[in-house]
Design a protein around this nucleic acid. Structure first.
Lengths: 210, 210
DNA sequence: AGGAGAAGTATACCGGGTGCACATTTGTTA
DNA sequence: TAACAAATGTGCACCCGGTATACTTCTCCT
């Protein structure tokens, strides 16, 4: 579905890419707040107006890729193997993400990915926006869970807890990677922690705190 | 600790209050985005520069009160009755909040409180900022839990799940109140749901989703 | 070849937020 | 009581993110 390309489409995609690349490069070099949209426009050889035609806000220059994954958890639940439970499907998907170094698991060694992640978590405006996207993902997961559980509130409670736990796992991984741990060295513990976290969701936090 | 008042302090507090009151009144009347800081300054008979001396951002004109409660969950855990578990203490505190119509439980009938709540949830910029404050509250709760559980990650996971569940309960209450349900009529169900939610935290989501 | 419509530009504007220099007020000390 | 230092408030100019408008340039289609 991404190949109806006439010249116009190709140019658009190239401009989109050029603006995004210029922006990321500048942000990584000088920091998000120290770069103005005017700087990005000049670096991409485009007018400021055009930048805002491709990206609705300055934050989206960084977050537009991440935003695509916002309903990933919902899809994992909806299209899980028959007979597999939602929690098992989500755990399996998260562990697979760890093996692949997916950005959302916070464990990628890839310098580009790692730097962007640090840029986001180190910039309040970006971190805030990311939470908004996460909220949309949570709503989508709530909907997916509500398809198999007609309780009026349990799907929402469960989705909130799941998203929160996934975020915490990701933050923990990212903190360690940022402070120097290699992804390969982190992987075994990360998997163990993910399994423990989902076990807590399944069996409750009561054994320690209840 | 709030009474070292010379004239200077008293004037400051009065100005602070005047700006805040003028801002809330204007926001409730016309909407957050339709009121400029200049409008607030004029209504409070102060210069725009002074508004920003008292409130770092426009959003803080609304959120400064809410922000005070950011570490409430942490305090509840830290100063709970001897022998009481963290989850029980938090549930008891939440239920007490429901009875009192505390704003954070989302169940207040008080028009002022309700309108401000709706203003926040209905304004993306405000809702986003609120999430930032919630993140700080979550960090505080993590610290409090880590004082009784030396596991490297369980406190963070638990805190995240608890905050997420509380937020969901609050949102559910607020949605119903906004759509016309009276607080008194909502109270019994709200209490039941809170108890069920904390039971899920204690015993796990596995019985339905695991 | 030529026209409809998309993409891009220049310019001016608005509102949030800051830096700076100056005026006013308050607390203190002589 | 006079006078000075510090705190507080003001006015102004400025930067930046974001939008509206009117205009030019390009691509596509017939």
């Amino acid at each position: 579905m991404d190949e109806p390309s006439g010249l116009r489409e190709r140019k658009k995609q190239r401009t989109h890419q050029a603006i995004s690349d210029a922006a990321i490069a500048l942000f990584l070099d000088r920091g998000f707040d120290a770069v103005s949209v005017r700087d990005v426009a000049e670096a991409a050889e485009v007018s400021k107006r055009t930048v805002f035609k491709y990206f609705p806000t300055k934050e989206d220059l960084v977050l537009h890729r991440v935003a695509d994954h916002e309903d990933e958890s919902a899809r994992v639940v909806r299209y899980r193997e028959p007979g597999q439970s939602p929690l098992d499907a989500l755990l399996a998907h998260f562990v697979a993400g760890l093996w692949n170094g997916d950005a959302i698991t916070g464990i990628s060694d890839n310098p580009q990915v790692r730097q962007v992640y640090e840029l986001i978590t180190g910039t309040p405006a970006l971190a805030e926006r990311l939470l908004r996207y996460a909220a949309r993902g949570e709503a989508a997961l709530t909907t997916a869970l509500a398809e198999v559980d007609f309780d009026p509130i349990r799907p929402a409670l469960t989705a909130a807890a799941i998203i929160a736990v996934q975020r915490t796992l990701s933050e923990t991984n990212q903190r360690l990677i940022t402070s120097g741990t290699r992804a390969a060295a982190r992987l075994p513990d990360a998997i163990t922690e993910a399994e423990r976290a989902f076990a807590l969701l399944r069996d409750g936090f009561g054994s320690t705190y209840g």
